[in-house]
Amino acid sequence: MKKDEELLYHLVQEINDAIYSMDSHFIKLHQNLVTDDLSPKQIILLDFIEKNSQVTIGQIASYLNITSSAVGQLVSKLEEQQYVTRRINPENRREIFVSLDTSGFKYFEREEEIKRFIISKYYSKLELSELVQLKEVIQKLNQIVIKEGTIDALNDHHLKKGEL
């Protein structure tokens, strides 16, 4: 049984190394193609808005796990550069909606171009059946991770800080 565990460990390590190497390459490529000077938190905020069309300051605060005041500062900086726009909810004047603005839409148009470039340069070299299989395996692993939950897994194996 110990031999199987070692084999599993080494296989997973090789997978993780390959993914890390590939992600590092894609990040470097992405950085060379993107002209926007955005912080990681600003990018996460823009992604959240783009996926949800219109969000409130409270929703952003909850999603980013920061205060509404901190969200206000983050949104103000993005608003100055026309990445986002704010407007008061006409039905609840204490609520502020945040949505993408001109620079925000341009940012995501450029992101789409970069994705298509990466797909044509790299993923297109794989067979369609390989891509389908890759997608299925990654989705299956993702479902296992979601089902098991990180905190539950740590508690189940008694792996707490200092016990590793």
Results as ranks from 00 to 15, higher is better:
Arg93Pro: 00
Leu29Gln: 08
Val132Ser: 07
Ile43Lys: 11
Asp152Ser: 10
Gln13Ser: 11
Ile151Gly: 00
Ile66Gly: 01
Phe97Val: 03
Ser69Thr: 10
Val84Trp: 04
Arg110Lys: 15
Asn142Pro: 04
Ser53Asn: 07
Leu78Ala: 03
Ser120Ile: 07
Leu159Ile: 12
Met22Thr: 13
Glu163Pro: 01
Thr56Asn: 01
Val84Tyr: 03
Leu100Gly: 02
Leu159Tyr: 09
Lys140Glu: 12
Thr85Arg: 11
Ser68Trp: 02
Val75Arg: 03
Tyr9Cys: 03
Glu113Asp: 11
Ser62Val: 15
Asp37Pro: 00
Gly162Gln: 05
Glu6Val: 12
Leu154Cys: 05
Asn142Gly: 09
Val84Glu: 02
Thr150Arg: 13
Pro90Trp: 09
Leu100Arg: 05
Val75Gln: 03
Leu33Val: 05
Ile119His: 05
Ala61His: 04
Arg94Ala: 10
Asn92Asp: 15
Ser103Ala: 15
Gln13Arg: 14
Thr56Leu: 00
Asp23Lys: 15
Ile119Asn: 00
Glu136Tyr: 07
Asn89Arg: 01
Ile60Thr: 05
Thr56Tyr: 01
Leu134Ile: 02
Asp156Ser: 12
Ile114Arg: 08
Gln139Lys: 14
Phe117Lys: 14
Leu7Glu: 13
Asp152Lys: 13
Tyr20Leu: 13
Gln31Asn: 14
Lys77Asp: 11
Ile57Arg: 10
Glu14Tyr: 07
Ile43Leu: 10
Lys3Leu: 14
Lys121Arg: 15
Asp4Trp: 11
Val84Lys: 06
Ser76Phe: 07
Val12Phe: 03
Leu164Asp: 08
Asp17Arg: 08
Leu74Phe: 03
Glu14Gly: 05
Asn92Ala: 10
Ala153Lys: 06
Pro40Leu: 03
Glu6Gly: 01
Glu91Trp: 09
His10Met: 12
Lys121Gln: 12
Phe117Ile: 00
Tyr123Gly: 06
